[in-house]
Design a protein around this nucleic acid. Structure first.
Length: 622
DNA sequence: TTAGGGTTAG
């Protein structure tokens, strides 16, 4: 919302010095009751508009008015209005009212005007109100500095100001990164000693803190100890699993929640959709969309954006697009989700067209949407277009590219065979190039079989990310393709010395509502014999096309054989794979797609491959 | 009346 859309007409406000009676004026009371209601419901814009009406009507704001109005201004982040409101407070003589002072502290810390917040705090006289004022100050300062927040807390304790649960809730957000886990746990212990842990809100808050600190088992322990789980408890646990990438656990917990009789809200469903997206679980995603309609959440932009992303990542661009088109007000996030969606499916042309449309619609791009559009250009081989976007970041939009943007452009140049330019770009970067930047160059060296440059990139990348197994595998394959077996051995020795083991690759397909998962050389499936029989026939077909090579029985081949065996009439098969598809399997699927009347879609670790009629949407560039 | 907990894209 822009400031222009909210003319508060302060100039016409008739502010009077309050009298004893003005605090109890009946009309003022009515305004205040309404303001309280709007603020409580989060209708902050309406609250400010009502305040304007109040002033125009000639009613006088009092100490009961300002807390709601200041909170609304802070929530909407309208700094100018906030300052004007402070003037109103002064003019109306409410500056020494503790409730108003508390709200002012909150407002100033929200706007990061910490000096002003402290000034207000120092003027507070009424010691009876100190807990609340300290709380406002602590929760504001904790976002600026963990140390300052805790120092205020210690000061509060040494001044013998009583704590309450809100004091604790204000401190916890300072401990939500793994680095501060110990501090957070100590606080939790202290809180237990003080007897606050049985408070529902406090328990939820620590549950969420542990999840953000990647200590998810601690979250779950707390969750299991909470006797009555509210919607917020379920949401905190579901979001916690979701943030930690534990997608199956999210879906299991969501099922438990449904059994428990607590109905989900928008926040729950956002977490569930994000897990469906990661797992490629479109079936559950579809159920969630039905739930969204049933519960009347369709206009929630968070959910729409999640649906766009979920469908795109489950391979259903049609539904992703339908959700995007159905949005009355498309936000930057919506555009980012759909642009990213087309990009990951190799439809770079559509992605850039949408990006241009977004600009025409007057939406200012951010660094994230640039990652999406650059990736889209890279996946579709739109080199010049991508370079134009990259340079426009700085020149047109005044956005300094991050390392991730450089790695996109190195990828873009590298795939196009412009390796020297890619190296040049890395060497002229104003930032220190990180692992993914050198990794992108290494990937390009593999495509273009440049062993010499690969060695340079590999040395850099293992220095920066010594435990990232993917780079060793890449380099080993580069040596192998070049026939340099000594090189292969050298890389393997490095891996062994560093105790690194290859991630096991797996693939799955959905059949009759269940996912069937395969690992390389898998013989555990009950239909194993038939699957290998089908695979043999497929390999013969592939050889007929003279494009098949055998690189062992990789998991995606088993998944495809299983799907063709059981779903003979199906016209489209989606395989989800955790790693990147290898060159041999890519050739294999391309070859069989020429002979089998079915489209194969493979979602690998980085993108989608659509195989049809003997070719792939990635144009062999991935 | 005031302070505080759970939220999407890459």
């Amino acid at each position: 919302m822009s400031r222009q859309s909210l003319p508060l007409c302060f100039k016409t406000a008739r502010l009077q010095q309050p009298t004893e009676t003005s605090f109890a004026v009946a009309s003022g009371g009515k305004w205040n009751t309404q303001l309280r209601q709007l603020s409580k419901n989060g209708q902050y814009k309406q609250a400010l508009l009502l305040y304007r009406q109040m002033l125009r009507s000639g009613a006088t704001p009092n100490a009961f008015t300002f807390p709601f109005i200041l909170k609304s201004s802070a929530a909407l982040s309208i700094r100018l209005t906030g300052k004007q409101l402070h003037c109103h407070v002064v003019k109306s003589g409410c500056l020494l009212e503790p409730f108003v002072q508390t709200a002012l502290i909150s407002l100033y810390t929200k706007f990061r005007l910490f000096h002003n917040a402290l000034k207000v705090f120092d003027e507070i006289a009424d010691s009876a109100r100190l807990t609340v004022c300290y709380n406002a100050l602590i929760s504001g300062f904790i976002q600026k500095s963990l140390t300052q927040g805790f120092l205020l807390f210690l000061e509060m304790r040494s001044n013998c100001v009583p704590l309450n649960t809100v004091t604790i809730l204000g401190l916890v957000p300072g401990c939500t990164i793994p680095l501060h886990l110990n501090l957070g746990s100590s606080l939790h212990c202290l809180v237990a000693k003080l007897g606050f842990t049985s408070h529902h809100d406090v328990a939820n808050c620590f549950l969420s803190m542990y999840a953000r600190c990647e200590s998810i088992e601690s979250s779950r322990r707390l969750f299991d100890e909470i006797p009555e789980r509210s919607l917020i408890t379920w949401n905190a646990m579901i979001s916690g699993y979701s943030q930690n990438g534990l997608c199956m656990k999210v879906l299991d917990l969501f099922r438990d929640m449904q059994c428990s009789g607590v109905p989900p809200d928008e926040v729950t469903l956002v977490g569930v959709l994000s897990s469906c997206a990661n797992l490629g679980e479109q079936r559950i995603g579809l159920e969630v969309e039905e739930m969204i309609k049933f519960r009347g959440f369709v206009s929630n932009p968070f959910l729409r954006n999640s649906l766009i992303s979920m469908y795109a990542r489950c391979g259903n661009l049609v539904r992703a697009r339908a959700n995007f088109d159905a949005m009355a007000e498309k936000t930057l996030v919506s555009w980012t989700a759909i642009i990213g969606g087309y990009g990951m499916h190799g439809q770079g042309e559509v992605a850039v067209e949408l990006f241009d449309q977004m600009i025409k619609a007057g939406i200012r791009p951010d660094k994230t949407v640039f990652v999406c559009v650059l990736t889209a250009c890279s996946h579709a081989g739109l080199t010049e277009k991508g370079l134009d976007y990259f340079y426009s970041m700085k020149e047109v939009y005044r956005l300094s590219p991050l390392s991730v943007h450089y790695s996109c452009v190195v990828d873009l140049l590298g795939r196009a065979g412009r390796l020297a330019e890619a190296l040049n770009l890395i060497e002229s970067m104003p930032l220190q190039p990180d692992g993914p930047v050198w990794g992108a160059l290494l990937g390009a060296c593999k495509i273009h079989k440049n062993v010499e440059l690969a060695e340079l990139a590999f040395n850099k990348v293992v220095e920066l990310e010594p435990t990232n197994i993917g780079y060793y595998v890449l380099q080993s394959n580069i040596y192998s393709e070049a026939g340099d077996m000594e090189g292969v051995v050298r890389v393997r020795v490095m891996m062994r010395e560093r105790g690194l083991k290859k991630d096991p690759g797996y693939s799955y397909v959905e059949y009759k509502g269940e996912n069937h998962l395969f690992v390389a050389g898998d013989r555990h499936h009950p239909q194993s014999k038939e699957i290998y029989g089908m695979l043999k026939r497929l390999e013969n077909l592939a050889k007929q096309g003279d494009e098949g090579e055998n690189s062992g029985v990789h998991s995606e081949r088993l998944a495809i054989a299983f799907a063709l065996l059981n779903m003979s009439s199906i016209k489209e098969i989606l395989v989800i794979k955790n790693l990147r598809i290898c060159g041999d399997c890519h050739r294999f699927v391309k070859a069989i797609s020429k002979f089998v009347d079915c489209r194969f879609i493979v979602r690998d670790a980085t993108r989608f491959h659509h195989f049809d009629g003997g070719s792939c949407s990635c144009k062999d560039y991935w």
